[in-house]
Simulated scan of single mutants.
Amino acid sequence: MADLSLRPGEEHMHIGPLPVGSAGRKSSGWFGMITLIATEASLFLYLLFSYFYFAIWSNGAFLPDALPKFELSGPDTMILLLSSVAVWWGEKGARKGSRLQLSLGLFGGIVLGAVFVGVQLLEWAGKPYRFSSSPYSSLYFTITGFHLAHVVVGMLVLLVLLVWSLLGYFDAKRHAPVAIGAVYWHFVDAVWLAVFFTIYVTPHLG
C-alpha cells in the first residue's frame, strides 16, 4: 500500500495497486483475437479445400497406399480435447477469483499441449514419405505443420497467462486476458477436429 504525502496540513492519500487489464468483455483484445481467428480460420479453410480438390480430381491416385491410421492420431486427439477441458476449468476458476484453479488449469493445458506436440512429431517420424514425396505428403505435412505451429503459439500464450496468474494479476472481475487466451486455445483444438476428420477419417470413407 503506497503512502503519498501531500502538502503540510493535508490528509494522506492511500493508493492501492492499480487493476491490471480490462473488466469483462470490454477489452479491446477481444476484437484483435476475433480478427486473428477469422484470418487463421481462412488459412486452414484454403488448405483443407486444396486437400479435397486433389482428392476429388485425382481418381483415387492422390492417397498413399497405406491409409492414415488412428493408433497415434486418435489418442492425440483426445489429449488435445482434454487440454481444452483443463483450460476451460482454469478459466472458470478465474471467474471465481481462484488463483489456484486458474494456475492448475493453465498448467494442465500446457502439459497436455506438449504431449500432443510430442505425439505428432513421433507420428511424423514414422511416415514412409517426406514433404516432397507427393502432393498428398506435401499437403499432409503443410496442414499438420501449420496446426502444430498454432499449438506451440497457444502453449506460449498459456505460459504467459500462467506466469501472470502466479503473480496475482487476475481476480474475479479482471481476467479478460485469460478469457481471450482461452478462446485462441479452443480455436486451435476445433481446427484440429477439422484436420483430423479430413486427413484421418475421410480416406476410410471411400
Rank of each mutant, 00 (worst) to 15 (best):
V152A: 13
E71G: 02
R25Y: 08
H175P: 04
F187Q: 01
P128W: 08
S133A: 09
A190I: 15
P19M: 12
D171F: 03
Y136I: 00
F116R: 02
L158T: 03
P177F: 10
I180E: 02
F196I: 11
W57G: 07
G97L: 13
T144I: 04
L104N: 06
W164V: 00
I79S: 05
S132W: 10
I143H: 02
R95V: 00
L45E: 01
R7E: 15
V151C: 07
S22D: 14
V163G: 01
S58L: 05
M33H: 07
L205C: 01
I143G: 03
A38S: 14
G109A: 11
W185A: 14
G154T: 08
G93I: 14
A194C: 08
L80D: 05
Y184I: 01
H12S: 14
M33G: 06
V119I: 13
G21M: 07
R7L: 15
V117S: 01
H150G: 03
D171N: 15
A149D: 02
S132A: 12
L161C: 03
N59F: 06
Y136W: 06
V188W: 12
K96V: 02
F141M: 04
I143V: 06
Q101M: 10
K173I: 06
M33C: 07
L104F: 09
Y184K: 04
A176D: 13
R99I: 14
A179D: 07
F170Y: 15
I79R: 05
V157L: 10
A125E: 03
M13I: 11
G154S: 10
P128Q: 11
S84L: 08
R25T: 07
V87A: 15
G9L: 13
Y53G: 00
L82N: 08
P203F: 04
I56E: 09
W192P: 00
A55G: 02
V157M: 14
S22Y: 09
P68V: 05
A38H: 09
L63K: 04
P203Q: 08
H175I: 12
F44E: 04
L159T: 15
G113I: 08
A2L: 10
L82G: 08
L80V: 09
V151E: 05
V151P: 00
A41R: 04
A179G: 03
S165T: 11
Y46V: 11
V163S: 06
V163C: 04
